[in-house]
Design a protein around this nucleic acid. Structure first.
Lengths: 162, 162
DNA sequence: TATTGTTATACTCTATAACTATA
DNA sequence: TATAGTTATAGAGTATAACAATA
């Protein structure tokens, strides 16, 4: 966990965000694991269903690296939920096609995701959930839209294997 | 980034929480890096200032592992901000004593943290920030208090080196 | 030359186990 | 026996580089 401890009196926004997002992520992981999915598999499945999309396009939508995408698509193929198909427009690219079983699983996983979210919002008093969503959406589209430059040391280049 | 992509129409609570907490964390890291601190160093410094505390106590307050604590205290000592002192009550334990320089840095880092948080809340319309804090606090103390059991495979035991 | 997808691997982060010294 | 702190290292997650095929 990367979280600042709660200040005794005043609520600490960093702690609140870190804690809630962490807990919600574990809850979501457990809920989706029951049908054999990770959050990333669910995300790719849903976006691949909407329209014909390549791995790179799906990676951008889910904010993943293309190499992470490879692993995720491997898992989906192995589970029989999606298939790589050559793109007719670009022979380098692969369209991720959702199988019938994949579409059914995606329907169920979306229900699971919606249910987990609904349960959280229903734990709040009348109207507070709506304000919470509105405030967070505002921040995501505005002041907190983009991350700051990471101040960490740059990763060194890989050793040439000749 | 571990985040689900935004649903087109309905706001996705998981995405909103992951995105805002991630962005805020990078902003905070950059802001604190200017005075040579990480969020964890700041957290330990502040709690160590409040009263005499051992490493284990500070680790619990910051929700860190005791081994992570070792690294953090090492960094604080190297920067001359804190010192390990033997506890008079328990010769196994070390009290983390904040130096004068450490106290001064902690004062400044608390200002930085408060400033970053204030800026976020001020980016919201009148009153919405208060509701946001109230709703999140409610969740942290109630429905989202504790993480679900991690469904990941347990980490295997370390190889005995004899 | 640039881009898609792949592989291999290096780096970071964190937690586990074993250890030393105390209790 | 159990606990505080330390060390070493395993494992997960992820990003980087290089590569092959194609644009």
């Amino acid at each position: 966990m990367i979280a600042m401890a709660p200040a005794r009196t005043e609520p600490d926004l960093s702690f609140l965000l870190d804690h809630t997002s962490h807990v919600l992520r574990t809850r979501m992981a457990v809920a989706l694991a029951e049908i054999g999915l990770t959050a990333r598999m669910h995300c790719v499945l849903v976006h691949a269903l909407e329209e014909e999309r390549t791995q790179i396009q799906l990676a951008e939508l889910g904010d993943m690296d293309k190499t992470t995408m490879v692993v995720t698509v491997d898992a989906l193929e192995e589970a029989g939920l999606a298939e790589r198909r050559p793109s007719s427009a670009d022979r380098r690219a692969r369209i991720i096609a959702v199988t019938e079983k994949g579409a059914e699983v995606a329907r169920r996983s979306q229900e699971i995701v919606d249910g987990v979210h609904r349960a959280v919002l229903e734990a709040l008093p009348e109207g507070e959930g709506e304000v919470l969503l509105r405030a967070m959406s505002r921040l995501v589209e505005g002041y907190l839209a983009t991350p700051a430059e990471a101040p960490q040391a740059a990763r060194r280049a890989r050793q040439r294997t000749k």
